[in-house]
């Protein structure tokens, strides 16, 4: 039981970290970035590179975020910008971009599964359970990501501009806000978060060129359910992530893999706005 509580908390934390970047892009730009999984993979390979380079594994996080940001901003400029009026095509184009990124990674690193060094080793005794310390640290890590995003959105001028663009882009433009710049930065930020999440989760498993796809599906479902709010994303990750853990342990891990997608589909059918307030 205690182990399950910890599993739920850490799973929700991982899902939150993974989905936050997708939510940021969807919230501001109303675009679903299907390259999200590829950016996650990219972050995983950034972690692999730091392992190979023999530098501190902690550096994997800033490296992944910076690489994600730069590539994301470029992608926004050249691929996403022509597609704002065609949101379904934007899904497809970013999926195609994901294929490209995946194949480039495969060409450079090969198809095989590889392992990265974890910045934290060992276990800790929590709730009478010996539990992976790194996994536990993901909880404050995800909270940190959420708080930093909230601070960025609610405490800076860029965040204010982004919120204005979300709420009413036409009005924001009329007040002199350059919504193109806001979008570039947002897409860069969302991609950076995806890559960071990739670097965060790889020490728990491994890296391979297809690692992002299942995460993409789950993140997509969570964002559809959460709408545009960081708070409802937290609720969604705890509820759906918790259900996933419970189904995995009491039914079967295979069915657990389905839980988020199926529950999200059911929730959205009953309540199209999901966990968002209206």
């Amino acid at each position: 039981m205690q182990a399950q509580i910890l599993d739920i908390a850490t799973s929700a934390a991982m899902l939150y970290a993974v989905a936050a970047g997708l939510l940021v892009i969807f919230g501001v730009m109303k675009i679903i970035n299907f390259a999200h999984g590829a950016f996650l993979t990219l972050g995983g390979y950034c972690a692999l590179l730091t392992t190979w380079a023999g530098i501190s594994p902690w550096l994997a996080f800033p490296v992944a975020a910076i690489v994600g940001f730069i590539i994301g901003a470029l992608v926004e400029r050249f691929i996403v910008r022509p597609l704002y009026q065609r949101p379904l095509d934007a899904i497809l184009a970013t999926w195609g971009l994901g294929i490209i990124l995946g194949q480039v990674i495969t060409l450079i690193f090969g198809r095989e599964v590889q392992f990265v060094q974890s910045p934290v080793q060992g276990t800790a005794l929590v709730l009478d359970t010996d539990y992976s310390l790194y996994r536990l640290l993901l909880v404050p890590g995800a909270i940190l990501v959420g708080v930093a995003l909230a601070a960025l959105l609610h405490g800076t001028r860029l965040g204010l501009a982004a919120r204005a663009v979300i709420m009413n882009e036409a009005l924001a433009r009329g007040l002199g806000i350059d919504s193109d710049r806001v979008r570039s930065l947002t897409f860069g930020l969302g991609s950076a978060l995806a890559a960071l999440a990739g670097a965060l989760i790889t020490p728990l498993s491994s890296v391979d060129p297809a690692m992002g796809v299942p995460w993409l599906v789950n993140a997509f479902m969570l964002v559809m359910v959460a709408g545009r709010s960081l708070i409802s994303l937290m609720v969604a990750t705890v509820v759906l992530g918790g259900a996933q853990v419970l189904v995995s342990s009491y039914a079967s891990p295979v069915l657990g893999g389905l839980t988020i997608a199926v529950l999200a589909a059911i929730i959205l059918r009953i309540r199209p706005q999901g966990f968002a307030r209206d």
Partner: peptide, 27 residues
């Protein structure tokens, strides 16, 4: 585009949805 015109010291107050109702007065 509107933002470039606004940046040239033109202020525009539209008829509808002229405020951000979910932002506070200060914002």
């Amino acid at each position: 585009p509107p933002q470039r015109i606004a940046r040239q010291a033109v202020s525009y107050t539209p008829q509808d949805q002229a405020l951000f109702p979910d932002l506070n007065v200060g914002d």
